[in-house]
Design a protein around this nucleic acid. Sequence first.
DNA 1: TCAGCAATCTGGACTTTGTCTAATTTCCGG
DNA 2: CCGGAAATTAGACAAAGTCCAGATTGCTGA
Lengths: 139, 139
Amino acid sequence: MSLMHYTRDNMAGLLRGHDINPTHQRIEIAHALFSRQEHLSADQVMAIVNTRHSETSKATVYNTLKLFLEKGLVREVIVDPSKVFFDPNTTPHHHIYEVDSGKLSDIDAEHVHISGLPPLPDNMVTEGIDLIVRVRRKA
Amino acid sequence: MSLMHYTRDNMAGLLRGHDINPTHQRIEIAHALFSRQEHLSADQVMAIVNTRHSETSKATVYNTLKLFLEKGLVREVIVDPSKVFFDPNTTPHHHIYEVDSGKLSDIDAEHVHISGLPPLPDNMVTEGIDLIVRVRRKA
DNA sequence: TCAGCAATCTGGACTTTGTCTAATTTCCGG
DNA sequence: CCGGAAATTAGACAAAGTCCAGATTGCTGA
Ligand SMILES: [Mn+2]
Ligand SMILES: [Mn+2]
Ligand SMILES: [Zn+2]
Ligand SMILES: [Zn+2]
């Protein structure tokens, strides 16, 4: 699993497994995210997918990323006020954000413990807990 | 301190204490935030400040909020992909974000403990730790 | 085979949030 | 008062994201 090598061929199966009809564009977009295992913005996905020659429209990139999100194939990371990052890692984990460079990296949730959170009102459920460590280069 | 009542008159002193020249517009913007003690977006500040008659330009609202941020008078909360919230509460605390309604509320950091975070590289310093509990109305 | 149909994709107009700039206004200190 | 620095302003601009109506694609059933 952790040694999985994400080829374009794998992508169709991955998409089907999440109830997503594997079209050419969707395969390319999934491949961009999963072969790199990096946090990418819509713009970056757009650029990657259209490197050779223009293949996929902006509308499709945005629609597809939203679809992936709904189907639980990717996760959204909100750390930069100017753009959303899409994260192919959907296992519970946290993030380190380097504010100067915009570099975003993962912290495994395994050893992190958060205690003392107040109880939620009865009619509420937790959808997720986002922990972001904002760091900066030392002066 | 916790019972502080923020009048417009107080605002001038508060601003001076943070090395901010208290102008009419700055006082109005500070008053919008501190009298409510709520998380406000730039748009909301703009609307509040210009309720009676138009007094403060968009440029000034954005410039002033950025100035307040730099001077440590307010804090930025990045939780919604479409807008930034400004927080008059600068004491260490965390947030609950209700995804449906967009309602944002505070969690006192006092009793929350976060352990097991990996050590940072030597050349990095933590600027802040943001913990956001994303909640949703039960189905 | 192929007409019909639903799903998908597309260019481009549009909206929203935020930034920038050059011109004006406000606020002093001398 | 006068001159200059600080602050404010309108409005042009930019970037991220949404929306729509028309074109394409890929089935499916006669
Ligand atoms: Mn983006
Ligand atoms: Mn705003
Ligand atoms: Zn991640
Ligand atoms: Zn807060």
